[in-house]
Amino acid sequence: MSANNVLLSPFNTFQNFHSINCNGRLVDLSSPQLMGILNLTPDSFSDGGKFNDEKSALQHAEKLLKDGASIIDIGPQSTRPNAEFLSSEEEVRRLGNIISSIKKELPEALISLDTFYAETVKFGFNEGIDIVNDISGGQFDENMLDAVAETNLPYILMHVNPSYQTMHEITSFADITLTVNQYFSKKTDELLKKGIKDIILDPGFGFGKTVEDQMKMIDEAEFFGFGSFPLLIGISRKSFIYKPLGKSALNINEETQKLHLKVLHQGAKILRVHDVAEAKKTIDEFLNT
């Protein structure tokens, strides 16, 4: 199935405006938003160990906001290939008071919690998070989606292989856009039935897809979810960009911003990034075209 076939879908209801309800705060997505990454992990592939205490995490969150982020995505567990697998208890230990400290010192910040555990979501909700960012689509913890529904928070739904053990197994799909949309169709129906209404779609760059398929995902970003839900793109420092170029994760800003601009022109509403200041320039360029 080609992108042209996707256009013919009766569910194609492309919208230029979206908003999400974050704990009673209505967030306007008519202009693209930046999600700055705050990793609390010692083993993340590009910034492991830099921000895994309360003081440095708070300082980095403040910098992300000053650079132009409106959302801080806090990740207590690395999900790169061969990363250490942590329990929910260890995630909560790493989080400590960081969420509540950021909410206290930087009340304008929206906080997204990157976890696939129900118990971590419950902890984060009590600490004041505004969004749940789940790479697993509820597949790694059978209680996850019920926990999200109880919070009434927006939910980021990512396309991924069905288990933690297989999430990075490379699969070549006959049509990646069709495959991801079939997944989104099934999962959004499940989420809506549970009462989760504020859904953000993430196609899952860096998770079990070939370089070719990921470049196709960039080219066909406008078709994901048929425009019915806001689209988040997370390509920052991903290997499908830097490995073919023979570069490092920290040396592909120019190439990344070109891809960011491309997906923005296709309706992407949130960019999840490490380099907020550079992505802010790209959004400004997009808004001025």
Score class of each variant (00 low, 15 high):
168 H>V: 03
183 Y>R: 06
85 F>N: 09
245 L>A: 07
102 I>W: 06
74 I>V: 13
264 L>W: 11
144 M>V: 09
201 L>Y: 06
114 D>E: 04
183 Y>L: 06
269 K>A: 02
263 V>P: 01
58 L>Q: 05
213 D>Q: 14
118 A>L: 09
177 T>D: 00
60 H>L: 05
185 S>K: 13
206 G>V: 05
38 L>K: 11
57 A>P: 02
6 V>N: 05
83 A>D: 05
190 E>A: 07
140 F>V: 13
259 L>M: 14
19 S>H: 14
137 G>Q: 07
195 G>M: 09
53 D>Y: 12
190 E>R: 13
258 K>C: 06
202 D>F: 10
118 A>Y: 04
35 M>I: 01
107 P>Y: 11
59 Q>F: 10
107 P>T: 14
157 L>G: 06
55 K>C: 01
268 A>G: 04
70 S>K: 11
170 I>G: 01
151 T>C: 12
235 I>A: 03
64 L>F: 04
4 N>S: 10
288 N>V: 10
38 L>Y: 09
225 G>Q: 00
32 P>S: 06
21 N>V: 00
184 F>A: 01
13 T>E: 07
113 L>P: 03
280 K>S: 11
142 E>A: 14
62 E>A: 15
158 M>R: 05
148 V>A: 07
254 E>F: 15
161 N>L: 13
220 E>H: 12
41 T>A: 05
194 K>R: 15
194 K>F: 05
66 K>N: 12
202 D>M: 12
